[in-house]
Design a protein around this nucleic acid. Structure first.
Lengths: 195, 195
DNA sequence: TTTTTTGTTGATTGACGAGTCAATAAACTT
DNA sequence: AAGTTTATTGACTCGTCAATCAACAAAAAA
C-alpha cells in the first residue's frame, strides 16, 4: 500500500522514535530494530531512509537542537530588557519540551556520542556557541566585562542541571532548576553591584 | 610462570586500563580484549578476575570515586574556616588527578552507565550525597538557610564543568574551572550579605 | 500499457564480542 | 611424592546486530 510522499513522515517518526528509545534505555545501545519497531516499520526501511544508525542519531540530535533553538528564539522576541533576555533563555532551557525525561536522557547520550563522532561534536559546539552568544547579549549591558565569565558559568550550570536531572527519579522539577540557574545570575549581578 | 598473589595486581591493572580505555575511546563500547590487552593480559584472565565486563566498570567507578574522596578528605583536614572548607572541596574537584582527561571522560560514561545499572546509580548517588553534605558543613555557617540551595547549585555547576571539559580540546584548564565554581559561591555569599 | 520511481519487508550475510572451557604450568600443602 | 590451589591462555560457543539484497506492490510517467 505504498502511498507516496512517505519519506518525511517516516523520517520524522524515526527521529522521534530514536529519541524515545535512547531516553528509555538510557544509552546509545539501541538497535535499529527497536527504533524501527517503535516507529512502526521494519528495520530495513529505517536503513532505507537513513543510510546508517549514526545518521539516525545525528538527525535526532538536530531535531532536539531545533526545538531548543526555536523555543529560545520565541522567548527572546518578547523580551524587552537585558535581564528579561537572560530569563527567557533560562526559561526556554527548562521548558516542558526541552527538560522532559526523554530529551534530557538523549541529550546526555549525544554528549557521549560527540566524543567519538565529529559531526556530533560540531553540533554540540554549535549549541554551546549559540547559548553563549545569546546570553552575552543580555549580560553585557548588566555586567560589562564580567559578562563573559558569567555566561560561561551559566552555560555550565545549565548543562550540569540537565546532567543531574538524568538520574533524578520522578518528574523533572523545572521550577527548581530554573530558579537555581537564575539565582546564579542575580547573585553575580548583585555581588558585582556592591563590589 | 605463576607467581602467587597476582590477584590484586591484576585487578588494579585492569581497573586502570578500564579507565584509560573508556577515556580514550570516549564510550563504554570498549571490548574486554582491549582492556585486557592494555593491562597486559589475555581477555580470559580478565574474565577470571572480574566475572563480567560490568564488574570491571563498577570497579573502575569505585576507583575514581575513591581517589576523589581521598583528595577531598585530605584537603578538608587542613581547612580552618568554613570558607576554606568549601574552597578545599572545589580545589579537590579540579585537582590534577581528578580533572584529567581520562578521568573526566570516564566519569561522563559512568553517568550514562548509571542510567542502566542500578549499582552504578547507587555509586553516583553516594558521590552526590557526600559532596552535598561536605559542602553544607562549610556553607551553613556562611549562608544559613540558603546553604542548601547554594550547595545544590554548586554541585550541579561542578558536574557541568566536568561535562564541558569532556569536549574541550587540549589540556584541562583547572584554574579556570575552579575559579568559576568559586565565583559562584562568593557571588552568592556577597549577594546574601547585601540583600 | 509498459516502464520507472517510490515504498516496503523477510531473509541473509558477515562481523564482532562476551563469556566458557580445557589444558598447561608453577607454586604451595601434606 | 601426590594432591591442591593459583595463574594463565588459545580456542571455541553462542548470540546479537548493522547493513544488504532480492522480491513484491502500487503509484506515476512514458
Amino acid at each position: 500500500m505504498p502511498k507516496l510522499g512517505m519519506e518525511p513522515i517516516r523520517k520524522e517518526a524515526l527521529v522521534k522514535a530514536t529519541i524515545v528509545e535512547i531516553g528509555r534505555t538510557g544509552s546509545l545501545d539501541v538497535t535499529v530494530s527497536q527504533i524501527a519497531k517503535r516507529a512502526g516499520m521494519s528495520s530495513a526501511l529505517a536503513h532505507h531512509y537513513f543510510g546508517s544508525k549514526e545518521d539516525m542519531f545525528l538527525a535526532a540530535m538536530r531535531h532536539i537542537m531545533t526545538i531548543y533553538g526555536a523555543e529560545v528564539r520565541g522567548a527572546l522576541c518578547v523580551a524587552q530588557t537585558p535581564l528579561e533576555r537572560v530569563e527567557a533563555i533560562v526559561a526556554a532551557s527548562f521548558s516542558p519540551a526541552n527538560f522532559r525525561r526523554e530529551a534530557v536522557g538523549a541529550w546526555l547520550n549525544f554528549w557521549v556520542l560527540a566524543q567519538t563522532v565529529p559531526q556530533a561534536k560540531r553540533l554540540v559546539a554549535v549549541y554551546q556557541r549559540r547559548l553563549r552568544s545569546n546570553l552575552l547579549v543580555g549580560l553585557r549591558p548588566l555586567a560589562g566585562p564580567q559578562a563573559e565569565a558569567i555566561a560561561e558559568g551559566l552555560g555550565a550550570l545549565i548543562d550540569g542541571l540537565y546532567l543531574r536531572q538524568v538520574l533524578r527519579p520522578g518528574a523533572p522539577d523545572r521550577a527548581a532548576a530554573a530558579s537555581t540557574a537564575l539565582g546564579y545570575v542575580t547573585a553575580h549581578l548583585r555581588a558585582a553591584q556592591h563590589a
